[in-house]
């Protein structure tokens, strides 16, 4: 009984910490994104609020909170209010299954604390299923707004996410074949032992799986060059065009967390999670993990300010005619290599 209580308390603490980190993560990320944008465009980025504009996200948040929360008259009010929550909850729920490290022993007590909430034996399936749910929020948001731009954004998003979900699931299948497990902790453990054990360098299929996963991931989180659902040029802001204030902030929050999720998954699937690539640098594993994720997030931002947006038919072509056939071939090759 006592053991169970302790476990429950530990899990509650973990959930609390993870929730707080996830809620506050978009605050520095928006700042970093605007700074990266600024420097790539040879500007300074935010500079006025605080030193080097570091307090800009706080100012933005205050602004968001003070904005009027507009609900269009003809909107479906219930769905309209539900949609941001429906996008946000799956983005958070994914992190139940995501490990950020193996385990560490508490000093003095000698108790092992695992750095994940649960080591599900079907974590890959859980993540793909739950992250797929967030599309409901986007479609509902687009539909409930009763605006043609929003509904078009929502429909594009539906088509895009369903198409690329297939390629992404295939990439996950590839990882499962390489690591012989559906558990994320096991997947990371199977890659331990330095750079050349990582799935990314399982030649020749590793890099191909990685690229498929990465491209599909870009499309899944609606980032440029696949941000068709919120195409500023032709749809104003896409599915969240009618949203304002905190509801809009929820959509942005979900989007940033989805970006973090894809980065984390790419690190766990292909870059050895918290594994030290050299085996000699005495850094705590969690720092390796955070560093790799940060590099990925930078890559996302870097790509955003480099590439233009694909046309809708090009998007579909890449998804159905390139990624999925390539993944099918890759499944075959991986299978032959794993015999």
């Amino acid at each position: 009984m006592f053991e169970t209580t302790v476990e429950v308390i530990i899990i509650c603490i973990k959930v609390g910490v993870a929730g707080m980190v996830l809620f506050s993560l978009p605050i520095p990320l928006t700042w970093v994104e605007r700074k990266v944008a600024g420097h790539i465009q040879v500007r300074l980025g935010p500079f006025r609020v605080g030193p080097h504009g570091i307090l800009q996200p706080v100012a933005d948040m205050v602004k968001m909170l003070l904005k009027e929360d507009v609900i269009p008259t003809k909107a479906d009010k219930w769905l309209f209010m539900l949609a941001p929550i429906m996008t946000m909850v799956p983005a958070f729920a994914v992190f139940v299954a995501i490990p950020v490290g193996d385990k560490f022993t508490l000093p003095f007590i000698g108790k092992d604390i695992t750095l994940y909430m649960s080591d599900m034996n079907v974590a890959v399936v859980y993540i793909l299923a739950v992250s797929g749910l967030s599309i409901y929020g986007i479609i509902f948001g687009g539909w409930a707004s009763n605006s043609k731009y929003a509904v078009m954004g929502g429909l594009r998003s539906a088509a895009q996410m369903i198409s690329y979900e297939v390629a992404m699931s295939f990439a996950a299948v590839g990882v499962v074949m390489l690591s012989n497990s559906l558990s994320l902790v096991e997947i990371v453990k199977s890659q331990s032992g330095g750079l050349f054990h990582w799935n990314f360098l399982y030649l020749p299929v590793g890099p191909v799986w990685f690229m498929i996963f990465f491209i599909a991931g870009l499309a899944e989180v609606n980032r440029i060059p696949f941000d068709l659902p919120e195409d500023e040029g032709s749809l104003a802001a896409g599915y969240h065009v009618e949203y304002s204030g905190m509801r809009f902030a929820f959509f942005m929050l979900a989007e940033y967390i989805a970006m973090v999720t894809i980065s984390v998954l790419a690190v766990i699937f292909f870059l050895g999670g918290w594994d030290d690539p050299t085996g000699v640098i005495p850094l705590p594993p969690i720092l390796w993990f955070v560093g790799k994720v940060a590099a990925f997030i930078y890559l996302f931002m870097w790509i955003r300010f480099t590439l233009p947006r694909y046309r809708y038919d090009q998007l579909m072509t890449i998804g159905w005619k390139i990624l999925i056939p390539v993944s099918l071939v890759c499944v075959l090759v991986t299978g032959l290599m794993r015999i």
Binding site: V36, H39, I40, V42, R43, L44, W302, F305, T306
Partner: peptide, 24 residues
């Protein structure tokens, strides 16, 4: 091998690392 993508990314990386010309 995403040659054009990498070329483009290198261009923006160069700008990202360069000093801005903004007069403060």
């Amino acid at each position: 091998f995403f040659v054009d993508f990498i070329k483009g990314l290198m261009v923006t990386l160069g700008y990202n690392l360069s000093k801005g010309v903004t007069l403060r």
